[in-house]
Design a protein around this nucleic acid. Structure first.
Lengths: 121, 121
DNA sequence: TTAAAATGCAACCAGGAGGTAGCATATGAA
DNA sequence: TTCATATGCTACCTCCTGGTTGCATTTTAA
């Protein structure tokens, strides 16, 4: 094998850990049903499981599972009120995801700029 | 049942389709291995499967599968060069994902502003 | 107090995700 | 030509996901 640089020889920057940490957030967002729930909840009002189920084609139990997955990713939060369990949007982790996408985009733009400079000189 | 407004009674806006369309992109981003591949590829240089595999703990076949999933989401593209297959980052779909996250954040900020106004009057 | 509503919990199922190994094929280089 | 490299393809495995049904529990309201 030639002594060509391998991928890892460049020593991945520490910032990568932040990127990799957002994988669960993206995974939670990677489902239409959950995106719908997010869209409904980020309209502001905390809603019960029954309310969130009405208007969908799936069962209450399926909705519950999706809400739990969103909660594990930190994208929603629940508050128990009487016999109801109200769910509300939690924006912190979404901001984290936005920062990750911006970091990728920035790195890409930087690579393009460097390439352009190399071509023009 | 009381005639309380159901979730769907508010008629979901057309913009939702754009949101839901980005579910596959988020799903593709929702895996650490794929995020690593993205991070490497958006550094600019197109790389072969063998190069992308070296420095990881998984097999070449696993990397190939991940690259194919990223390609289906439109996040990477491949070019055949000789006996190699070079992969490069494709920024379009990532921008789409960024727009979706921004749309959610905007909707949330709007809801908060409305709530604040309702409280203050 | 008693029935209906809202939810919790557990079992179950089909299919896909993430990974492996083995072998075939194409291509570059000596 | 011949071998090593880079990749493709297929089968296989395990675990998680998205969904269901059935039944128990808690709480509200009549």
């Amino acid at each position: 094998m030639s002594p060509r640089r391998s991928v890892s020889s460049k020593k991945a920057p520490r910032k990568d850990s932040a990127l990799l940490a957002s994988a669960p957030i993206f995974a939670a967002l990677g489902d239409e049903t959950r995106l719908r729930l997010i869209a409904v909840l980020c309209a502001g009002r905390a809603m019960s499981i029954a309310q969130l189920t009405s208007g969908t084609e799936i069962t209450r139990q399926a909705v519950t599972k999706h809400l739990c997955m969103l909660a594990e990713a930190g994208l929603v939060r629940d508050i128990k009120v009487g016999r109801e369990r109200l769910w509300e949007f939690e924006p912190t982790q979404l901001e984290e995801a936005r920062r990750s996408l911006e970091a990728i985009a920035r790195q890409w733009d930087h690579a393009l700029a460097k390439l352009k400079m190399a071509v023009e000189r």
